[in-house]
Write a protein that binds this DNA or RNA. Sequence first.
DNA 1: AAGGATGCTTAACAAAAGATAAGAAATCAG
DNA 2: CTGATTTCTTATCTTTTGTTAAGCATCCTT
Lengths: 194, 194
Amino acid sequence: MFSALHQIVGQFVELDARENAILEQAFTFKKVPKKYKLTKKGEIATELFFINKGLVRLYYEKGKEEITGFIFKEHLFASSYDSFLRKVPSLQTLETLEACELLVITYQKLEELYVTLPKINVLTRKVAEQRFINGQQILSSFLLESPEERYRRFEVQHKDLLQRVPQNMIASFLGITPVSLSRIRKRMQQPSSP
Amino acid sequence: MFSALHQIVGQFVELDARENAILEQAFTFKKVPKKYKLTKKGEIATELFFINKGLVRLYYEKGKEEITGFIFKEHLFASSYDSFLRKVPSLQTLETLEACELLVITYQKLEELYVTLPKINVLTRKVAEQRFINGQQILSSFLLESPEERYRRFEVQHKDLLQRVPQNMIASFLGITPVSLSRIRKRMQQPSSP
DNA sequence: AAGGATGCTTAACAAAAGATAAGAAATCAG
DNA sequence: CTGATTTCTTATCTTTTGTTAAGCATCCTT
């Protein structure tokens, strides 16, 4: 149940048995169905989720449309970070795309961990750094690449998600409409001159 | 010379006189002219810069074009973070837009600081979290807003930069061409029906 | 299995942005 | 101060995307 968490945490900091036990106690296990909202827009996110199994989507609402901002896979820490860290009402909703098995830690428990296990500062620093770098790569793809190029990159980097996530969600994640993504896919099938 | 650094650091962690002295010793002061390259594409970034005075631009190269990825103002920590943290050749160049006064810390000195002053983990964690949140806000503006809306937001959030940064750099930062930004500005001047 | 929702594709048209080029304006360096 | 870059605007044309709507397929639920 905690093996994936230990494995991921172990990539960032070394913990002994006692420390691992303290870490485990800070989390609770939770099983939720598909389409379950982990964090709702307008509410303050008090929980951070480690995904043991399943997929979680982060989305914004623009009018009555849902714009996907990120898709969290297994073994990632998912949260509406802005809300979680700054304690402001979330602009984002976190919703499962599949039935999920999660390890949940509250903001308060995490703060306690920082005191009882200061090493955790190193862990969260490195996780934050990694997420920042990841975000920057996505951002740079908006500056440097066309929608078609972004989709090609998505295809190779997230082959698995192509089967697990509806195309309209991928489209909004790429910053385009579903119609436009459909056209791009068609364009890509046809090599060149007809 | 260190007053701004202390003020900013103080927002994240409390340091006593001894700790502040240790912090200061890790940095060196550097004055550089306009158009000076602090980090070059292809090289590994070994330094992190705290900007006492001046402006620093981060840009990518796309063909022979320079695409601005970020503009660092006074009292920010500027770096090619991906390269700095992962020790990989940088895809980005950091170049001053004005003559700058900087406090410089090397990767090695920073690693030493983590040992001699573990509190610094808290500082860098919070700085990383803040930069992540900031990056996420920029990213969401690409998903949710039109180029015109992004420019309007830029206008209000960075009035000062409008005078200090050439428009073509603002354009690429917004993900559009200079020509397109010029059109948007014209459109915005004319209220509605002529 | 049937009905209803959801998701994907396609078409037609409008709106916006990219590319290229030329000229005006501002800035910089000697 | 003046010639030379650099920057900004404007115009024209092309390409792409957005919008709306319709049709079809697929998935889910009862």
